[in-house]
């Protein structure tokens, strides 16, 4: 009995050693490049400071945080982030899943589709922003063209210049750019499913559709949840395309937390308050992500 306990102890210790060795490089890098900056951010959030080394740093205590809690613009931006998050999860993930399912079901011969469908993800945000700037242009853009065709008379659609559709237009573009990634992700998930499961299902008399819905999709559960978490976090800290396309406008209609933070820190020279926004953002996203993990991701048994 004692011997067994000793073995268990030795095992636990060797596990701890192995875990430490394997985790060390990642943890070290994260501390230097992420933990330290985020701590720094929280420290700066208690200052009135413009970021200049030689400028005066005034300690204002929790003033920035008090302002933040009452800052309508911040909560509005947060709301836009939440809308973006919900739409992204509802559009990108099912669409990516559908595309992956098609590719999985049709096998090797559909490789060409896979490559063509992935192209949006390979374009840089600068190119994407540029492209949709012209496609959505009120005058001479594609959408206005289609509207003119449908209406039978010259119709101008100002998608990016007016609220609230500016936000939805941008969400559409974000979905266009990111869906391919989820597609590839689900393909990887499908390939993780043991082929013998498919064979077994066929022997049991299941057709393709039944296999997909009864066998494959439930097996993709964990992958699916990971994808949702990624989309969730990605949407809550999104910056790129919004910055390239609308810079948060018109009239803050597409303002996100990240664009608001950037404007405050770097365009208004208000590093202190910008850091408070960043800190608030960090807390909100982490809490939402961890709650999501708790609620939807059942602890794996292993």
């Amino acid at each position: 009995m004692a011997k067994l306990q000793g073995m268990a102890k030795r095992d636990a210790r060797s596990t701890a050693i192995a875990a430490t060795i394997f985790l060390f490089p990642a943890v070290a890098l994260l501390i230097v490049y992420m933990v330290y900056p985020i701590i720094d951010t929280f420290l700066i959030s208690r200052l009135k400071w413009n970021g200049f080394y030689t400028a005066e740093k005034i300690n204002v205590g929790w003033d920035n945080w008090k302002t933040l809690i009452q800052d309508e613009l911040f909560w509005n931006s947060f709301l836009h982030n939440v809308i973006l998050m919900v739409c992204s999860i509802l559009i990108q993930i099912p669409l990516g899943m559908a595309l992956a399912t098609f590719l999985d079901a049709s096998g090797r011969k559909s490789n060409i589709f896979k490559i063509l469908w992935f192209l949006p993800y390979l374009m840089s945000s600068v190119a994407v922003g540029f492209l949709f700037y012209y496609l959505l242009a009120t005058n001479g853009g594609l959408i206005s063209g289609i509207a003119t065709l449908v209406n039978g008379k010259r119709t101008m659609v100002d998608l990016l210049g007016k609220n609230p559709h500016a936000l939805y237009a941008v969400i559409g573009v974000v979905a266009w750019q990111y869906t391919p990634f989820y597609m590839v992700y689900f393909i990887a998930g499908y390939s993780n499913i043991d082929t013998s499961l498919y064979e077994a299902a066929v022997i049991d008399g299941a057709n393709r559709r039944q296999y997909i819905f009864k066998v494959a999709i439930p097996l993709l559960g964990p992958i699916f949840k990971t994808a949702c978490t990624m989309s969730l976090i990605g949407s809550l800290k999104y910056f790129d395309l919004i910055w390239n396309m609308t810079q948060g406008g018109p009239n803050h209609g597409t303002e996100l937390m990240a664009t608001y933070m950037y404007k405050t820190s770097f365009q208004k020279f208000n590093m202190g308050y910008g850091s408070a926004i960043a800190g608030g953002m960090f807390i909100l996203i982490t809490v939402i992500a961890l709650l999501f993990q708790k609620v939807f991701v059942v602890k794996e048994d292993y």
């Binding site: 700037y133 242009a137 009120t138 005058n139 101008m156 100002d158 990016l160 500016a166 406008g249």
Partner: peptide, 23 residues
């Protein structure tokens, strides 16, 4: 003003283009 002016960028010279095109 031209349609969609609020989402047009002068860096792309689109405003100038409307003038040159005669629109």
């Amino acid at each position: 003003f031209n349609d969609g002016f609020n989402s047009m960028a002068p860096d792309n010279n689109d405003d100038r283009a409307l003038l040159i095109q005669g629109a």
